[in-house]
Amino acid sequence: MTIHRVIRKVQRFEGWFGGGAALCLIAGLYVGLIGSPPDYYQGEVVRIMYIHVPLAHTSLLGYTVLAVGSLWYLWKRDPIVDNMCQAVAALSAVFTALALGTGMIWGKPTWDTWWTWDARLTSFTVLLLILIGYLMLRTFVDDPEKEARYGAILAIVGFVDLPIIHFSVEWWRTLHQPQSISMRGVSISSGLLVPLLLMSVGMSLLFSYMLMVRTQLLYLDRLLHAKKGRLLSQFHLSKSDS
């Protein structure tokens, strides 16, 4: 199959994701910002939840995709799966960072502090550190085969570690700080559920769409340079013959 046919196919496919994401996000933003009532306890500030929680969910979804992709890569050694892993790690890192950022903005009016060692914030920080470590690791390996393999190993170990980190941090928090600061004030009523659901679905679709674009980007980049490299080598070859 020629490259541009592959790309055509992916582009046709990804349109559904992009369009779906746009529709869900627009509807979610409308309902979340305008169409829904303020929360009894938190007032208008609860609207931050509709952007913060979907970002956080999506980054976890992204990490799951990364772990599955890494396993798949170690099994099949398919370079495009590795491109997908690299893409999903970068996107997950961005989503995690944004989830942390919006979480901090939410924390200021509700808890009156930008940062607290809340279990969820802490485990997301560790998640972000792991993802940044993954991306750094990949830049420090010369051989692309090794780069993919090492990345996959780190991703899998980190994925197994994630629930353990979460539980340990949660126990640690409950030990040191009674439940004065928590999100228990927010009971999920149906009024909150609709925008939350719309935004969550929209964010997941957006993430899938971005993932497709980024995978395509890395794949095309690798392809173009591999071809260029081959041409360059052939150029050397023909020069040495003459």
């Binding site: 560790v126 420090f140 090794k146 090492y150 980190g158 980190i165 340990s168």
Partner: peptide
Amino acid sequence: QIRAREVMLPILLLPLVVPVMIA
């Protein structure tokens, strides 16, 4: 087997051993 290995070992390892450290 990678570049900057002295830095990368703690960078990769420490986030993963958070549970060990806490416990």
